[in-house]
Amino acid sequence: MARSMNMKWFYAAFGVLVVAGAAWIWSSRSGAAAVEVGPEPVTPTSFPGWVLGSDSAAVEIVEYADFECGACAHFAILTAPDIRKRLVATGRVRMRFRDFPIQGHEFSPIAHEAGACAGEQGRFWEMADEIFFNQATWVREGRPSKSFEDYAKALGLNMDQYKSCMKERRHAGDIEASRQHGLAIGVSATPSFVIGGLLVTGALPYDSIVRLVERAEARARQ
């Protein structure tokens, strides 16, 4: 009798744990919390971020990312290549990268400046890939400026220009402006995306991005 009671309590506790665990996993899924944001207040004087894709694309994906953020690297490695190949290259989508260095990430400022200095020579996206794809290495080694110089050399950048750009911190103001822009529209974590007026946080998988793009396309047609 006592054992039967114990088993009842056990199965009840087991069931409660299953439901609680499933609820936790479900609520952690990407795109669970999308927030409507207004049109981006980009003025001619503000730094517009780094753009990839056609001006005539109907939808723009704005990504707010931090080069030292693991989830951002995760997105860059797993999802961004598909987006570029299947959405950007086909003219459906335009990507806009906005720097959002997280306060407290030791190497983020220099990483974003390295990206911007490569961007100055028209190679931002290639440099961003190098930085994200090798994130685990340069974070672990703790000497990111040397690593970034190596990536710049490998990309064939003019190294004198790159070094002077880094030394002068030529783009620090643009990067901070981009971060402030993100804060102004409610970005609080990275990566965050604005797609068709929706602000979504998390390293979204490709299918989620496509769903948001389709929604934005439908809105654009209305």
Binding site: S28, G70, A71, H105, A189
Partner: peptide, 15 residues
């Protein structure tokens, strides 16, 4: 990639 953000605090989980 199904869960976008890992709740970790200091980024150690991602590293």
């Amino acid at each position: 990639g199904i869960i976008g953000t890992i709740a970790c605090g200091d980024g150690g989980c991602e590293t």
